[in-house]
C-alpha cells in the first residue's frame, strides 16, 4: 500500500470510529458527563502521576469525568459536521446547479451571490448571529449551514457546466426530456462524486469552526461538552495541567485529520477535484 492508501484507510477508521463513539455514547461512558464532583477537580489522566484508575482521562475544573465528556463531545462534532454539510449542501448545490445549468443572467446572479458571501467575514458574522439569536446547537448548525455553502456552489457550478455540454446530455435533450429530468437524472449523478469530496472538506471546516465559536464563548452553550468549549473552559488551567487542553485538542485534530485523509482518498478513488 502507498502512503496515500494507508492515510485513506486510517482516515476511514478514524471517521467511522468517532461516528460509532457518537452514536453509542450513552453506552460507552463510565460516568455521567455532566455530574460535577468538586472534591475531584483537575485529576490528571490515570496514566500520569496523581491519576486515578476511575478517571481514564482525568477530570475537568468542575470535577466532571473528562473521558465521558470527550465521548459526548464526539456527538456534537459529528452532529455539527453532518448537519452543516446537509444544510450548506442543499443551498450550495441548488445555487450551483441554477448558475451552471441556466447560464447567462442566472449565472451572473449566482456568481454575484457567491462573491458577496466570500466578502463577509465568516467568523465575525457567525459570532454576531449566534449572539443575537441566542446560542444553541440548532442555531450553530443553521448559522454554519447558511455560511459555508460557497464551495458546494462553486464546484457544482463548474462541474455542471462541464457535464452540460456532453453528448449524453444532448441526447437527453434530443429525446425530449424535461429540464428537471435532465438536471436531476442526467447531470446530478455525474457530478455527485465531486460533491462527496467537497462534503468531506466542508465537514472538516464546520467542525473546526464550531470549535472556534465555542472557544470564543459564542457557539454551543455550556454545559454541553463541545471539544472547543472544553478547551475554552480549561485554558485558564493549562499552565499547570496542560493535559486539559491536550485531550480535547488532540481529539479535534485527529477527527479533522481523519476526515481530510478520507476526503483525499475519496478524491483519488473517485477521480474528483477538491480544489475549486
Amino acid at each position: 500500500m502507498s502512503i496515500r492508501q494507508i492515510a485513506g484507510t486510517l482516515g476511514a477508521i478514524i471517521v467511522f470510529g468517532v461516528a460509532l463513539m457518537a452514536i453509542f455514547a450513552p453506552l460507552l461512558v463510565p460516568h455521567d458527563p455532566f455530574a460535577q464532583d468538586l472534591n475531584l477537580r483537575l485529576v490528571p489522566p490515570s496514566f500520569m502521576d496523581g491519576g486515578q484508575p476511575d478517571h481514564f482521562l482525568g477530570t475537568d475544573q468542575l470535577g466532571r469525568d473528562y473521558f465521558s465528556r470527550l465521548i459526548y463531545g464526539a456527538r456534537i462534532s459529528m452532529l455539527i459536521g453532518v448537519a452543516t454539510v446537509i444544510t450548506s449542501g442543499l443551498i450550495g448545490i441548488t445555487l450551483g446547479m441554477l448558475g451552471g445549468f441556466l447560464g447567462g443572467r442566472a449565472d451572473m446572479v449566482v456568481m454575484f451571490i457567491i462573491t458577496c458571501r466570500l466578502s463577509i467575514p465568516l467568523i465575525l458574522v457567525a459570532l454576531a448571529v449566534v449572539s443575537l439569536v441566542g446560542s444553541s446547537l440548532t442555531v450553530v448548525v443553521l448559522t454554519l449551514g447558511l455560511l459555508l455553502w460557497e464551495r458546494f456552489a462553486v464546484v457544482t457550478r463548474t462541474t455542471v457546466m462541464q457535464v452540460r455540454t456532453l453528448d449524453y446530455v444532448s441526447a437527453a435533450w434530443a429525446a425530449g426530456c424535461s429540464r428537471t429530468h435532465i438536471l436531476l437524472r442526467e447531470i446530478l449523478p455525474n457530478i455527485v462524486h465531486h460533491l462527496v469530496v467537497v462534503a468531506t472538506l466542508e465537514m472538516a471546516i464546520a467542525i473546526l469552526l464550531e470549535a472556534a465559536l465555542s472557544f470564543l464563548g459564542l457557539g454551543v452553550p455550556p454545559p454541553l461538552p463541545s471539544w472547543g468549549l472544553m478547551i475554552s473552559e480549561a485554558k485558564d488551567y493549562m499552565f499547570f495541567s496542560p493535559w486539559v487542553i491536550m485531550v480535547p485538542g488532540i481529539s479535534l485534530f485527529i477527527l479533522v485529520l481523519g476526515i481530510n485523509f478520507l476526503g483525499d482518498a475519496l478524491r483519488d478513488f473517485l477521480g474528483a477535484t477538491r480544489d475549486a
Binding site: 472557544f215 487542553i245 485529520l257
Partner: peptide, 15 residues
Amino acid sequence: AVIGQAMPSFWLGLL
C-alpha cells in the same frame, strides 16, 4: 500540508 490543515488554530495558539 494535510496534517497542518487539521490543526485548530486557537489550539495551536495555546500550544
